[in-house]
Design a protein around this nucleic acid. Sequence first.
DNA 1: ACTGAACCGAACCGTATAGTTCAGTTCAGG
DNA 2: CCTGAACTGAACTATACGGTTCGGTTCAGT
Lengths: 223, 223
Amino acid sequence: MRTAKSAPEGPPAAPSGARAARKRQAILEAAHRVFLREGFGAGVDLLAAEAGVSKVTLYNHFGSKENLFKEVIGRTLDEALGASESLIIDRLAESDDVRADLLAACRSWVSGLATPEVLALRDVIAGERRRFPALGEIWQERGPVRQHAALARALGRLDERGLLRIPDMELAVLQLSGLVLSPHLVYGSYGADMSASLADRLVEGGVDMFLARYGTGAAVPGK
Amino acid sequence: MRTAKSAPEGPPAAPSGARAARKRQAILEAAHRVFLREGFGAGVDLLAAEAGVSKVTLYNHFGSKENLFKEVIGRTLDEALGASESLIIDRLAESDDVRADLLAACRSWVSGLATPEVLALRDVIAGERRRFPALGEIWQERGPVRQHAALARALGRLDERGLLRIPDMELAVLQLSGLVLSPHLVYGSYGADMSASLADRLVEGGVDMFLARYGTGAAVPGK
DNA sequence: ACTGAACCGAACCGTATAGTTCAGTTCAGG
DNA sequence: CCTGAACTGAACTATACGGTTCGGTTCAGT
């Protein structure tokens, strides 16, 4: 009898064990695919079928469709931002060739986020924000906020080292993001994707514009 | 008997007359409010109630919820973009003080689009794009595409007149948009709105960055 | 003042979906 | 190898929504 004991059963505890771990993983992978393909409107029956799992099992593990979606958001963002986050941004901070490393960081940043999958997920979340505010909060926290913090840290370090001069860091971060990334987010939301050529011109042109404004003479070694 | 005559009744013709015009207007105004507040998920019953109109009347006028929403999108964008479109952009083309007029154009542009209502509508459309692609197309066509065309025309004219030098117009338009407008669209999608101070720094900083890159000596008269 | 278009409201239809229940089956750890 | 936790599938509840139908009422143009 499971409903015994006493009252306070908050989260009824997800199943444990080897089999449960496999099922859980299968559900998460299927949900990743299905949510990206169909949006949050995808039915729970479909999610369960795609995972090769019964609906009951799905509910035993995640409790609700919303919870499952939250997990998927977190995983997707970690995957999309992991590369540029620690790898590139931290390397940028101690760079000796700011232009080259800033270009690399921005390329990685854009290629991680400006994919049809991530853009579609972003739109789904934006559209569902009114009904499920928690989704938007998770996205914001594990996405833009984290990324901007990392970028601000790296740029601040470059300022300290005299390679850049940035009087208004909040503004500078938004500007860099606006120059190299935002066009993808804003104009990729309507299905019309961007040519690779234009994407590249955005990164190069944006970085040059950024350095023309905030660079010091010391920013490029060979020049 | 209305279903008589012969076959080809495509759009069954909206009601006409004085009363019908009033009702139609009431429906559009209510739908504007409700869709902005509740998103496309708002029930037709609610829309009709808010308009002080029966559901049947609503369907007689617009045929479907989707059609009604399309009308609302068009009206909202015309209202949001009308000011900056013809008024400012055309004035910018023949400007003698590019910095001042570009600042004015951008301020008008941002203040028209970066309102909670327009941002919310944008999110709703983005989220519903999978189910109703026509909504996204209307938004894109009557919004960004039109606006970018006007901006490109004005900047092209300034190039002709020797006040700017813009080798890649497509890139330049995206950059200006990215600098002054995109941060609102991208980071306003999560409820966290932007301080007036930051919005102003974005416009001023963005225009200066833009002119530093594309301006010629002739761009500012007094200098 | 009359006539028909336009309107009302309430019931109705069909469909879709989140989440639950349950009786019976599979699996894994002790 | 055996016991109970975890899983299955299918039926079930409850709800919500888009759109239609219908009998009866209001209004506006002639």
